[in-house]
Design a protein around this nucleic acid. Sequence first.
DNA 1: AAATATCGTTTACACCCGTAAACATAGTAC
DNA 2: GTACTATGTTTACGGGTGTAAACGATATTT
Lengths: 125, 125
Amino acid sequence: MSNSPHITEAESEVMKLLWQKEPLSASEIISKLSDQMSWTDQTIKTFLNRLHKKHAIRFEKAGRNYLYFSLVSQEEYLKTENRSFLDRVYNGAVGMLFTKFLEEETLSEKAIEELQQLLEKKKKS
Amino acid sequence: MSNSPHITEAESEVMKLLWQKEPLSASEIISKLSDQMSWTDQTIKTFLNRLHKKHAIRFEKAGRNYLYFSLVSQEEYLKTENRSFLDRVYNGAVGMLFTKFLEEETLSEKAIEELQQLLEKKKKS
DNA sequence: AAATATCGTTTACACCCGTAAACATAGTAC
DNA sequence: GTACTATGTTTACGGGTGTAAACGATATTT
């Protein structure tokens, strides 16, 4: 259970693709990201390599193609990022974090109702 | 309305002090942070200097002492940090962010009720 | 078998950031 | 006015990160 490696912002764009659909071939990853991010193929290959080195992804050879799989789940990633953000910016005060986001962001009525249900559920545990 | 400068994690420790009580003298800042963060005085002086250069703080001379004032409010800082975190990690989906934090963090009953009130208020606008 | 395409690997480079030493300046004390 | 003190300013340096070129290896095509 090695704790998740640190995934940088740029690297996370690769991970986000894999979390949506897995596996993906190198060419799929490269073509999507060179569009979305305006990165050259070389840049994307660097990220794939770094992610591989830190065991955040793995790949399999299939003939002349390579298939990529994530080794770090989005759950783990979000958990780590949430924690560090919460501590860094709010000194761990979740209540304050919620309050601030509620002040600043707009939520659809539906979203609000979903949150209210979540809170009700939470109350009972 | 120049948009807020980027304040790094280490620098934010200085700002947090100023947001609590303002102004503070250099010696107050240095003594508090060398304790809390185990930084040398030189390190802290670097942060003060960088914050000054990017117009996040200002200072006034008072004899041989210097008094520091923040130029970036905590509100602005939180707003910026929240936005960038939300976009970077959640692609702007606030609802998902709330859901994830609710899953992971424990909230006191009182905190939950406060949030419920906030949500009710929010509904009406 | 030689050429080509598809990848991985190595190396590079500049900027940011945490950390800090060294130097400069201006009050204060003696 | 000379030494000391409190502080700002300049310079440094290594590691992380975004960005990428150059090189290498292997499978497909011809």
